[in-house]
Each structure stands twice: as structure tokens, then as C-alpha cells.
Design a protein around this nucleic acid. Structure first.
Lengths: 125, 125
DNA sequence: TAAGGTACTGACATGGAAGTTAGTTATGAC
DNA sequence: GTCATAACTAACTTCCATGTCAGTACCTTA
């Protein structure tokens, strides 16, 4: 998968007023940068996960929030849900092509946060 | 400015359990991916802005939220605040080096959101 | 026989994020 | 003399994201 990024179009997009309030890009941005959305996308960027694995990987998430987050991302076409009719139930979640695109952009961001966390929060004292 | 990104360290960071709950990276990530934080960083990635300019650029933001967001980003050492002792007051905000680093990662994300918003929210019907 | 894993859903509660309104400071414009 | 402006702060309120708890269906293991 290749993530294409044309700086000219980027500039055009951000040029005047950035995103007006209520514009769809805001909604999308909110979904993918949401507290739990980021973590789920990051986990899935590595490999497919099943429900219970995600629950452990996104440390601290409640079941309700995991369900909600996955539903949103699935509706957005970023996450693919595949349930197998077995007992006990087994559901696998993976990224769609679009999902892979965002995840690829999210990973460097998370890495940056991880590497700079100390320095940044250190300023605070 | 060059943003260095070493995929090996990235993998190490994300390898086990991603970010544990309550870990500082989560806080940092929350700051830079917050609803208004993203918009402010994007605006400043272009050029220095004064308060009232940011207020217009981050369409829909309240004064309270702008103040709060800027204060957080300033404490994090991502945004530099320079006030001039003139009447009426004039305060300019710009990115620090760290700020430029994150902003550089945020721009492609925002661009992606902008370009894919229609497609993504279109799924929804 | 009862306890536990799996993938959920729904009702209810709450805390923190966000909005609203008003006030401040000092000056220049009318 | 009073209105506007710029960049805020503080108090109060509202609302939504999130948490908590309970329940479901079916099977496996102890």
C-alpha cells in the first residue's frame, strides 16, 4: 500500500479558513484522532485482532467504548469486521485499505508522542 | 527542519501493549489530537498568527477554548507566545521546533481527512 | 453444578469538556 | 463622554463522552 500525499493539494485544502465549522473533514478527523480511535487503529495497523485482544491492547478501554469505537470506524469504512459463527464467538477486526492509509499516518504521530513525552511533560514543572 | 522517524524504534514502542493506560504518551497524544489542538497547530504550521487571527481560523472555537488550548500547547513547549506591550494588546503565537515536528505529522493527516471526508461519510447512508 | 470465557447490548450515572456571559485594561476615535 | 478594540480571566451552566453495572447465549472446563 502506498500513501500518496501531494503537498500542492494539501496547501490548497488548508489555505483559507482551514476547515469551516461543521464541515465533514472535521468529523472524520474527530473519529480518527479520538482518544480510543487512535489506539484501535494503531493496534490494527500491526495485524488483525480479535475483540478480546483489542480490549487488552487498548489498555483501559471499557467494553462499551470499544464497541462504540469499532462501530464508528466500521461505518467509516476504515475497519473490517468478520465474525465467525462458532462457539464461543470469534470476531476478527482488520483495517480496510482506507484504514491502512490513516493508520500509516497515525503511526509516526504516536511514535513522536512516545519519544517526546518525557521532554514535553517535563516542561510542566 | 527534518523529522526523523526510525521504524525500528517505532516498532519497539508499539510492540507490547502499545501505551499502557496513564502513560505520559497518552497525555501528549491527547493534547495534539484534541479537537481544537489540531486546528491551532495546523494554522500555526503555515505561519505565525495573532490571537484574533487564530480565533477566526479555528472556526467555531470559543475564546475560552482558544485560551485553554494555547495554554496547554504552550506548557507543552509546542507553541511560543510573544506579547507586545502595546495598546491595544498584540500577542503573536508561533510554533517551537517541537511544535513544527508534530505539525509536520498532522498536516498529512488533515489533508487525508479533507480528501477522503466525502467518501467516508458517504458510506453512512 | 457451577464457574468462566466470548462478544456483545442497554440503562443509568457522572465528570469533565465545552459553551455563555460578564468583566478587565488602556487607548484612540467619534 | 462613551464606544470600540484586543486579549484575555472568572463564574456559572449545559451537555456529551465516557464509565459502571447488569444481562444475554452458548459452550468448556473443573
Amino acid at each position: 500500500m502506498e500513501v500518496s500525499y501531494d503537498p500542492l493539494r494539501a496547501t490548497a485544502a488548508l489555505e483559507n479558513g482551514i476547515f469551516p465549522a461543521g464541515c465533514p473533514s472535521r468529523t472524520v478527523l474527530d473519529h480518527v484522532t479520538s482518544k480510543w480511535g487512535v489506539l484501535v487503529l494503531l493496534a490494527l495497523s500491526e495485524r488483525e485482532h480479535r475483540w478480546s485482544e483489542l480490549r487488552r491492547r487498548a489498555d483501559g478501554i471499557s467494553e462499551k467504548m470499544l464497541a462504540q469505537t469499532l462501530k464508528t470506524l466500521e461505518q467509516d469504512g476504515l475497519v473490517h469486521r468478520q465474525s465467525q459463527p462458532v462457539i464461543p464467538p470469534r470476531v476478527d477486526y482488520s483495517l480496510t485499505d482506507s484504514g491502512q492509509e490513516v493508520a500509516a499516518l497515525l503511526v509516526p504521530l504516536a511514535t513522536w508522542a512516545f519519544e517526546n513525552a518525557e521532554k514535553i511533560l517535563g516542561n510542566r514543572n
